[in-house]
Computed example of a mutant assay.
Amino acid sequence: MEYEEFEKNTLHEIKSSQIIAISNVCFYLIISATKLIVGHFVNSTALKADGYNGATDTLSYLIIFLGLMFAKRPVDQFHKFGYAKAETLATLMTSVLISETGMWVIYKGICALVNRNDSRPDFLAAFVGIGIGLLTFIVFLINRHIATRINSKPLLASSHDQRLDAITSVTTGIVIVISSLGFAWLDKLNAIIIGVFMMRTAYKIFDSSAFRLIDGFDKGKLNTFKLEISKFKKIKKIQQIQGREYENDIYLSVVVQVNHKMTVEETTKLRDNIQEDLQKKYGIFKLDMQFSTK
């Protein structure tokens, strides 16, 4: 596959990701506003915490959308690999945002629990929580399917958070029902648990995006590529192999040992054959191969 085809496919994936991201901004804006308004009027600390969680997701998808817009910028003399890292940076920023909101939700939940606020939430809050939870789960399935098809890591990371949002909303609705029957403290405790889950999600997203941002690469993938290159008989030994990921694009840098009698034409043909093989099987974007006779 030629570079122009790769670039065209990448731009198509980014545009598709943008459409999904902005759709999710609208979706989360509506459901978070609904949770916050209903939670305020029916005195449900847990539903309000869930609403803040949704508001955070609204900002998260907005940040991802802006990151995807920046990632569309073409390669220039200062960015030879393009701007694809902007997607990873956007994902990293969302993890920080989720973490901060999670700490605030935990704080508010603890305050409500310590102050012994015995106000019981209304059943309306339960219906809102469960209904929105089921709707969010449907949206999660759609987003996961599309994100997997276009291989968008930021959207995949956000979809995992969306699954947790769906479970949290349904659980919140069930807890509110129990709280309404005389266990008001459960509503406050559930708010704290929501905050803890938000912190956990933030850590997982941060860990994954930070690993990619500092050019971390899966050792298992490198071993797979190494075995594939070793299948070519003219390769005596692979002296060094390094990988770098720019979202959906993988760049490989390899130093191999070959027979000293090989001509420049033969090594060029060998490199082209290996690159074509890796592109077809693993979607390698670019292969930088150097030859050694030692």
Rank of each mutant, 00 (worst) to 15 (best):
L113Y: 11
S159T: 03
A210V: 15
L181D: 05
I250Q: 12
A202I: 01
M1G: 11
A112R: 08
F70D: 07
H145D: 12
G243D: 04
H260Y: 12
S208H: 11
T91V: 04
N190T: 15
A46G: 03
N53F: 06
I98N: 03
Q279E: 13
D277P: 09
S23Q: 07
G67M: 01
S179L: 01
S95K: 01
V42I: 13
S209G: 08
S44Y: 06
K153G: 10
D57H: 09
S119D: 11
L156E: 04
T148F: 04
E7F: 14
L278E: 03
T34I: 08
I30D: 00
M103L: 15
R271K: 15
N273R: 13
R244M: 10
R163V: 00
E228P: 09
V256P: 05
D215S: 14
I146N: 09
Q240F: 12
V256F: 01
F137G: 01
F197P: 02
A126I: 02
K281V: 04
A202P: 08
I142K: 12
T101A: 14
N273C: 10
G67Y: 09
S208L: 03
A21Y: 10
D207I: 14
V196Y: 05
T34H: 00
E2F: 12
K237R: 12
L68T: 13
K219M: 14
T148I: 09
I205N: 02
L222D: 07
F217R: 09
V42D: 03
F291L: 01
V256Y: 07
V254G: 08
D57T: 14
T148W: 06
F41E: 07
N9K: 13
V170R: 02
I174D: 02
T171M: 10
D249G: 13
Y28E: 00
K234I: 00
D50Y: 03
D277S: 15
D118R: 12
I63M: 07
A90L: 04
V256A: 11
S44W: 04
Q279V: 06
L164I: 11
K280Y: 09
K219N: 13
H145S: 15
I64Q: 00
I193H: 08
F27K: 02
L287E: 00
N259R: 10
V170T: 05
V264I: 14
T224Y: 04
I19C: 08
G131E: 01
C26K: 05
V114S: 05
H12K: 15
L155M: 12
N43Q: 15
H160M: 08
I174F: 09
I110H: 03
T267Y: 06
F127M: 14
F197N: 02
T56F: 01
L29V: 12
C26T: 15
D76H: 10
K108A: 12
M93K: 05
E265I: 12
S169V: 00
N259C: 10
I30H: 06
D165I: 06
A46N: 03
